[in-house]
Amino acid sequence: MRLKKALRKDLFVTAFLICPMGLYAAFVLWPYLETFGYSFTDWSGVAPPSRFVGLENYVALFQDDVFLAALWHNAQLLVVLPVVTIMLALFFAFMLNAGGRRGAAGVRGVAGSAFYRTVFFLPQVLSVAILIIMFQATYRSDSAGLLNGITAALGLTDPDDPLPWLASPDAVLWCILAILVWQGVGFYLVLFSAAMQSIPKEIFEAAMLDGASRSQVFFRITLPLLWDSVQTAWVYLAIAAMDGFALVASLTPGSSYGGGPDHRSEVLATYLIRNFLTFGKAGFACAMGVVIFAITLLLSLAVLRLTKRDSVEY
Rank of each mutant, 00 (worst) to 15 (best):
3 L>I: 13
5 K>T: 04
10 D>S: 11
13 V>P: 12
17 L>P: 00
23 L>I: 15
25 A>M: 04
29 L>H: 06
33 L>I: 13
33 L>A: 12
35 T>Q: 10
37 G>H: 07
41 T>W: 00
43 W>P: 00
43 W>K: 06
49 P>H: 00
49 P>V: 06
50 S>N: 14
52 F>V: 15
57 N>F: 01
57 N>Y: 03
71 L>S: 02
72 W>C: 12
73 H>P: 10
75 A>Q: 07
78 L>F: 14
79 V>S: 09
82 P>G: 03
83 V>L: 15
84 V>N: 07
85 T>C: 09
85 T>M: 05
91 F>C: 14
94 F>G: 14
99 G>S: 08
101 R>D: 10
106 G>D: 08
112 G>H: 10
117 R>S: 11
122 L>M: 11
125 V>E: 14
130 I>E: 09
133 I>E: 15
134 M>H: 01
135 F>P: 15
140 R>Y: 10
144 A>F: 13
153 A>E: 07
155 G>I: 09
156 L>G: 13
157 T>F: 03
158 D>N: 13
163 L>M: 09
170 D>I: 00
177 L>S: 08
182 W>L: 06
189 L>V: 04
196 M>T: 14
200 P>Q: 05
200 P>S: 12
203 I>C: 08
204 F>Y: 13
206 A>L: 10
209 L>K: 08
217 V>D: 01
220 R>W: 00
221 I>A: 04
222 T>D: 05
234 W>F: 10
238 A>K: 00
238 A>C: 07
239 I>K: 00
239 I>D: 01
243 D>R: 08
255 S>E: 11
256 S>I: 01
259 G>D: 03
261 P>L: 09
269 A>L: 11
275 N>G: 13
277 L>M: 11
278 T>H: 05
281 K>I: 03
291 V>P: 08
291 V>L: 13
292 I>C: 11
295 I>Q: 04
300 S>Y: 04
302 A>P: 09
305 R>D: 09
306 L>Y: 06
